[in-house]
Design a protein around this nucleic acid. Structure first.
Lengths: 247, 247
DNA sequence: GTATGATTAAAACGATCGTTTGAATTGGGC
DNA sequence: GCCCAATTCAAACGATCGTTTTAATCATAC
């Protein structure tokens, strides 16, 4: 046992070098060129390992993508659950402030996105994109791991915002995730459209938080409809097929 | 001239059949499998045309993707500009209601996304994704066409929301686009995480509008910071590298 | 030293990729 | 009828894809 253990640890240390080098490079390439746009030769070439190394260590290209994904999302989930647990312990059963709940949920994501040195930013762009094009593997992943974390935060928000239905909270959590995703990934496109825009990275957090809190605490749609009919004609040529965004 | 014109029109009618068939099929396949994940043989096979037809009519695969993109985004831009022009004419120089401005901007997008019969929904998913992974072609597109529409709506919002800086409006427009993108594309992932969620499509518009308006009209970050310190510890193991979402 | 198991290396596999070629087919103008 | 341009078609091009195979190399246990 002891011998095997020593040997194992040694070999594991060896492989971790190659394995992690492959993972790091893959993370960047998958983000930049997509799954199909990234070839094994691009990966192994840039990682400085043999072509067969990926198949040896991960089995298949798809399994490699899965490994890239798993490594980061586990880290993200752990940070989110831990942040919520700390806050709930402090509150001793009482409700939390919505702003702090959002901090706990989106803080780890933004922190990871702010890490441009170790691929965190790269991965968050990959995650935000993958969320809108769920493959079979990602679907299963969402159901297994993501659901738990989302429901915990939805519960916390439900306590913090009395009177707001859970379904509404989940939808708004979903909308907020979209806003955060664009805040992280879409900056390039935004700067392309408006080059003169102030994109001070230190202001992004407050800007985003202000927006998210406003959206989260917005009056419900039912009461809103009474205030604003908001029936805009956004139709085709003749204006017949009007679209009612608020109806 | 007349003869040539007649002949041209006839042949154009002929090619339009193949061309549009290719465009329609490509739209679906590019959305579902991405650019690299879609092969010319998948496209031509499903469209019922010869393999060489794409190269003949569009020149190259990338040009085909560009054509797919252009067809829809032109339609979107025209609808948005038109909706704004109508509202501004009615208002006779006065400010517009923010809810109506959002209707004008996001109404056409949601209307297109609601069109599941003719590929509109498909394309909106493609657009939302492409926005976060801008290729060289999309970058140029953003700068040329998207910028104009965005700035028009930003100006309208600037008039409607006195005291809010233009930069802030642009950022919030950006955040809102993320929320809308997730509302359109991320439903599958959301349902995967929370299967019991109420996803009545007729409620999506009001839900989204309520959220967007809340985020748009939220107090600015500067004043918000005074109310909520909102410094969450979302750090790693030791809690040393705390993240300040609001600082 | 030798044996053993894990890792790396070089080479090749068949399959599929986007694109091109050149001939066949089409359809309207004379 | 023929002509001509547009389009379609079948076939092939070289390149690249993910994966497998087989041998070489390495580190460790005995």
């Amino acid at each position: 046992m002891g011998l095997v253990d020593t040997q194992m640890r040694q070999t594991e240390t060896d492989t971790r070098d190659t394995r992690e080098r492959i993972l790091d490079v893959s993370e960047v390439l998958f983000t930049e060129h997509g799954f199909d746009g990234t070839s094994m030769r691009m990966i192994t070439g840039q990682a400085g390992v043999n072509l067969a190394a990926v198949n040896y260590h991960f089995g298949t290209k798809e399994a490699l993508f899965q490994a890239v994904f798993q490594r980061r999302i586990d880290e993200l989930n752990v940070a989110r659950v831990k942040a919520l647990a700390v806050m709930e312990a402090e509150a001793q059963g009482g409700p939390l402030k919505p702003s702090r709940i959002l901090d706990g949920f989106f803080g780890p994501a933004l922190a990871m996105a702010a890490d441009t040195k170790h691929g965190g930013h790269t991965f968050m762009r990959l995650l935000g994109r993958t969320y809108t094009e769920p493959t079979q593997f990602v679907r299963r992943f969402m159901a297994e791991e993501y659901a738990d974390v989302m429901n915990r935060y939805a519960d916390a928000l439900y306590k913090a915002l009395p009177g707001v239905p859970v379904a509404e909270i989940l939808w708004r959590l979903h909308f907020m995730m979209g806003a955060v995703s664009y805040a992280i990934s879409g900056i390039d496109a935004l700067k392309q459209a408006v080059p003169e825009l102030d994109d001070d990275p230190t202001k992004l957090g407050p800007r985003l938080m202000a927006f998210l809190l406003g959206g989260l605490r917005a009056p419900l749609a039912e009461s809103l409809r009474l205030q604003t009919p908001a029936i805009a004609n956004v139709a085709g040529e003749d204006g017949s097929n009007a679209v009612h965004l608020n109806a």
